[in-house]
């Protein structure tokens, strides 16, 4: 059953049946950018509803990726402490203790990024999420962010780039915070 779904997901993405998760993620990211908003290449092709369905489909594919073997999160660096909700805490760094992802997911992502030694430009290049939006994510400046369905995709992409073990969970926390009307 799960295998059948995997086959359908790969087929939908036009990938080989033996394609790995990295390829799936790369293909999903290309599409998240394409369907994120006012992309000139899809002008008039589909209705808003169809566009949202595309995003939901990609979201579904990403959320079905089980990643127990995606490499231990930041295994080469010492892990401070596992936080709640299964989101791993960040490694020690000069920036002090890791912010709690459950209450400050934006700070948490920034902390992780810095402790990986990456700047916004690098994350943007890898995730195709614009630097401006990455900044808004870290700032938790919700007014500068698009609809939650996109934000979910962004958070997952960023969390994966930073090797967070359960990106969907972090995205869930983030969306809850948006729904709670944080800023």
């Amino acid at each position: 059953m799960k295998d059948g779904q995997r086959v359908r997901d790969l087929e939908w993405l036009d990938l080989d049946p033996d394609a790995g998760d990295a390829e799936v993620i790369a293909e999903c990211r290309r599409r998240l950018t394409l369907y994120a908003g006012d992309h000139p290449a899809i002008y008039s092709l589909m209705s808003e509803e169809e566009r949202h369905r595309m995003l939901a489909r990609i979201d579904g594919i990403l959320s079905r990726l089980k990643k127990p073997d995606s490499g231990p999160p930041l295994s080469s660096t010492p892990v401070v402490e596992d936080s709640a909700e299964g989101v791993p805490a960040a490694p020690d760094s000069e920036a002090g203790p890791a912010p709690d992802p459950a209450t400050s997911p934006g700070d948490f992502l920034r902390y992780l990024r810095r402790s990986c030694g990456m700047d916004l430009r690098e994350i943007s290049a890898e995730t195709k999420v614009s630097e401006r939006q990455l900044e808004a994510i870290e700032e938790e400046d919700f007014s500068a962010l698009p609809a939650p369905v996109f934000v979910r995709g962004f958070i997952i992409a960023v969390a994966r780039a930073l090797k967070v073990e359960k990106p969907e969970e972090l995205a869930g926390i983030y969306l809850e915070k948006i729904a709670g009307g944080g800023s």
Binding site: W12, R30, R31, L34, A41, I42, L45, M46
Partner: peptide, 13 residues
């Protein structure tokens, strides 16, 4: 890149 993006969107759609 427009050609590649149109090509991808058509494949999905």
């Amino acid at each position: 890149r427009l050609g590649d993006d149109v090509s991808l969107a058509c494949r999905d759609y």
